[in-house]
Protein backbone atom coordinates (compact mmCIF):
# COMPACT_ATOMS: atom_id res chain seq x y z
CA UNK A 1 0.00 0.00 0.00
CA UNK A 2 1.04 3.56 -0.70
CA UNK A 3 0.85 6.61 1.55
CA UNK A 4 0.80 10.02 -0.09
CA UNK A 5 1.87 12.64 2.41
CA UNK A 6 1.57 16.40 1.99
CA UNK A 7 3.59 18.67 4.27
CA UNK A 8 2.68 22.36 4.10
CA UNK A 9 3.63 25.48 5.99
CA UNK A 10 1.12 26.64 8.59
CA UNK A 11 -0.88 29.78 7.94
CA UNK A 12 0.99 32.80 9.21
CA UNK A 13 4.43 31.29 8.58
CA UNK A 14 6.17 33.33 5.89
CA UNK A 15 7.12 31.41 2.77
CA UNK A 16 9.79 33.40 0.90
CA UNK A 17 10.13 30.63 -1.67
CA UNK A 18 6.42 30.78 -2.43
CA UNK A 19 6.63 34.58 -2.67
CA UNK A 20 9.52 34.40 -5.15
CA UNK A 21 7.63 31.90 -7.30
CA UNK A 22 4.48 34.03 -7.20
CA UNK A 23 6.44 37.12 -8.32
CA UNK A 24 8.00 35.12 -11.10
CA UNK A 25 4.61 33.78 -12.26
CA UNK A 26 3.32 37.33 -12.24
CA UNK A 27 6.27 38.54 -14.30
CA UNK A 28 5.51 36.01 -17.04
CA UNK A 29 1.90 37.14 -17.20
CA UNK A 30 0.00 35.02 -14.67
CA UNK A 31 -1.54 37.83 -12.62
CA UNK A 32 -4.19 35.40 -11.38
CA UNK A 33 -1.68 33.58 -9.18
CA UNK A 34 -2.52 35.37 -5.94
CA UNK A 35 -0.65 33.42 -3.33
CA UNK A 36 1.86 30.59 -3.66
CA UNK A 37 2.78 28.28 -0.79
CA UNK A 38 5.43 25.64 -1.35
CA UNK A 39 5.35 22.38 0.52
CA UNK A 40 6.61 18.82 0.27
CA UNK A 41 5.04 15.72 -1.21
CA UNK A 42 6.25 12.39 0.11
CA UNK A 43 5.24 9.06 -1.39
CA UNK A 44 5.85 6.11 0.84
CA UNK A 45 5.40 2.40 0.17
CA UNK A 46 4.12 0.47 3.18
CA UNK A 47 3.94 -3.22 3.95
CA UNK A 48 0.38 -4.55 3.76
CA UNK A 49 -1.59 -3.98 6.96
CA UNK A 50 -5.10 -2.94 7.96
CA UNK A 51 -5.79 0.63 6.83
CA UNK A 52 -6.46 1.87 10.35
CA UNK A 53 -3.07 0.61 11.48
CA UNK A 54 -1.38 2.19 8.46
CA UNK A 55 -3.02 5.50 9.30
CA UNK A 56 -1.73 5.29 12.85
CA UNK A 57 1.82 4.51 11.67
CA UNK A 58 1.92 7.27 9.06
CA UNK A 59 0.60 9.80 11.58
CA UNK A 60 3.43 8.80 13.92
CA UNK A 61 5.99 9.16 11.13
CA UNK A 62 4.69 12.65 10.35
CA UNK A 63 4.73 13.75 13.97
CA UNK A 64 8.18 12.32 14.69
CA UNK A 65 10.08 13.08 11.54
CA UNK A 66 8.37 14.01 8.29
CA UNK A 67 6.90 17.30 9.49
CA UNK A 68 8.07 19.85 12.03
CA UNK A 69 4.77 20.70 13.66
CA UNK A 70 6.11 24.02 14.97
CA UNK A 71 5.77 25.41 11.44
CA UNK A 72 4.22 22.68 9.30
CA UNK A 73 0.89 20.92 8.87
CA UNK A 74 0.55 17.51 7.26
CA UNK A 75 -2.18 15.41 5.72
CA UNK A 76 -2.06 12.07 3.96
CA UNK A 77 -3.98 9.57 1.85
CA UNK A 78 -3.47 5.83 1.98
CA UNK A 79 -4.36 3.58 -0.96
Amino acid sequence: MIAKIYVTLKNGVLDPQGKAVQHSLESIGYKEAQDVRIGKFIELKLTEMPKSEAEKKVKEMCEKMLANTVIENYRFEID
Binding site: V13, L14, P16, Q17, A20, N68, V70, I71
Partner: peptide, 16 residues
Protein backbone atom coordinates in the same frame (compact mmCIF):
# COMPACT_ATOMS: atom_id res chain seq x y z
CA UNK B 1 15.74 22.63 17.99
CA UNK B 2 14.69 19.59 15.96
CA UNK B 3 15.50 17.37 18.95
CA UNK B 4 13.35 19.56 21.17
CA UNK B 5 16.25 20.57 23.43
CA UNK B 6 15.70 24.19 22.44
CA UNK B 7 12.44 25.91 21.44
CA UNK B 8 11.57 27.17 17.97
CA UNK B 9 12.78 26.22 14.53
CA UNK B 10 15.29 27.52 11.95
CA UNK B 11 13.75 28.15 8.55
CA UNK B 12 15.19 29.07 5.15
CA UNK B 13 16.69 32.58 5.15
CA UNK B 14 14.27 35.33 4.20
CA UNK B 15 16.08 36.10 0.91
CA UNK B 16 16.68 32.38 0.17
Amino acid sequence: VEAGLLPGVLMRNRDL
